[in-house]
């Protein structure tokens, strides 16, 4: 029995195990409060809702492991969505064909990766702080988007696009499948490729990584370019889910992605962190939100609870807790 626990811990990491326990507890509590929670329909609706946050969180993940941050994720997603929408409109809106969809997606991915690559290049070659660079890029992209759309919505897409947001394959929500595919790719990218290895090393000590012969500058450009690429995927999904593009869509998710990442046990100073616990924490946040919704609370309460959750988890992980406890016992 302990062998299983040990092996699970080794395979998943300490964070993941704690989060799984948390998740099971939460399912139990919500099910007790409303049996509706443990139903196919409620899980299916989570499967449609969670992937957007999930993709954006993955976009945030590698920059944070590398000791940086990408505050421009939402607007990179918006701008990429805009690029996609522009191709759709050129190709006749709802009548656009498969070729146009592919072309639009390609353009969106290029735009997203480009926005990221520019940030990465400034961070790598100028040595400016990622918070500052991505903040500048965020403000720029938001402005660019508002300028292009004049603050309005763009809608009218072919049905196939809607299917990405609302359809299912073999009964599983398409967005969920998309998310699982990207998450798997990122798990492999970060844990098994040379680039992924370099991400962790850069986050741990960039100069030592350079001395060991890792291409640190190229790694930084790649990190942000790939982050932009995932943003573009998220942007297309967002467009498919809302059936429209508006600059500012999903803005509230920016800090939630950071929250999910910290919840997933990523080292705030960079250098450490795994994909799996972060994915778990995304589903925990989603369950919390859906569960609270089911028992009649609104989205805002779940926002607050998310924040409290993060604080609670950080307190539980804190070494200080033990010492405070001892202090209390002694006193």
């Amino acid at each position: 029995m302990t062998g299983i626990v040990e092996r699970a811990r080794a395979a998943l990491g300490r964070e993941a195990l704690g989060l799984i326990v948390l998740m099971v507890g939460m399912v139990a509590v919500f099910t007790a409060a409303n049996p509706q929670f443990l139903s196919v329909s409620s899980f299916s609706s989570m499967g449609y809702q969670a992937p957007l946050l999930g993709l954006l969180t993955i976009a945030m993940l590698a920059p944070m492991i590398s000791g940086g941050i990408n505050l421009a994720i939402i607007f990179t997603a918006n701008i990429s969505g805009l690029a996609f929408a522009w191709v759709m409109l050129k190709a006749g809106g709802p009548e656009a064909g498969a070729l146009a969809i592919v072309a639009g997606a390609a353009l969106a991915l290029i735009v997203g990766a480009l926005a990221g690559a520019i940030m990465g290049a400034i961070i790598a070659y100028v040595g400016a702080h990622p918070i500052l660079v991505s903040l500048g890029m965020m403000i720029f992209l938001r402005g660019l988007g508002e300028f292009l759309t004049k603050g309005g919505d763009i809608s009218g897409f072919p049905e196939a696009v809607g299917a990405l947001g609302h359809g299912d394959i073999l009964g599983l929500p398409t967005p969920l499948l998309l998310f699982i595919a990207v998450a798997l790719a990122w798990q492999i990218l970060l844990r098994r490729t040379r680039h992924g290895f370099a991400v962790y090393m850069v986050g741990s000590n960039i100069r030592a990584a350079e001395y060991a012969g890792l291409p640190t500058k190229r790694t930084l450009v790649m990190i942000y370019a790939l982050s932009g690429l995932v943003c573009a995927i998220a942007g297309i999904l967002m467009l498919a889910r809302f059936n429209s593009v508006r600059v500012g869509h999903g803005e509230a998710l920016l800090l939630v992605t950071v929250l999910a990442i910290f919840l997933g046990g990523i080292d705030p100073f960079g250098g450490h962190g795994k994909v799996f616990p972060v994915i778990l924490s995304i589903f925990i946040l989603q369950m919390l939100s859906s569960g609270l919704n089911l028992i009649g609370a609104n989205q805002h309460l779940s926002t607050a609870v998310w924040g409290m959750f993060l604080i609670a988890v950080m307190i539980l992980r804190s070494d200080r807790l033990a010492s405070l406890y001892h202090l209390f016992r002694k006193g």
Binding site: L255, V258, P268, H300, V305, G307, L310, S318, D319
Partner: peptide, 22 residues
């Protein structure tokens, strides 16, 4: 609890705003 400030303030950002709106 020796938690770094960006984590804490992102959390309290959500708590403050969520509770206010709620």
């Amino acid at each position: 609890f020796r938690i770094i400030s960006i984590v804490v303030t992102i959390a309290t950002f959500n708590v403050f705003f969520g509770l206010l709106m709620f």
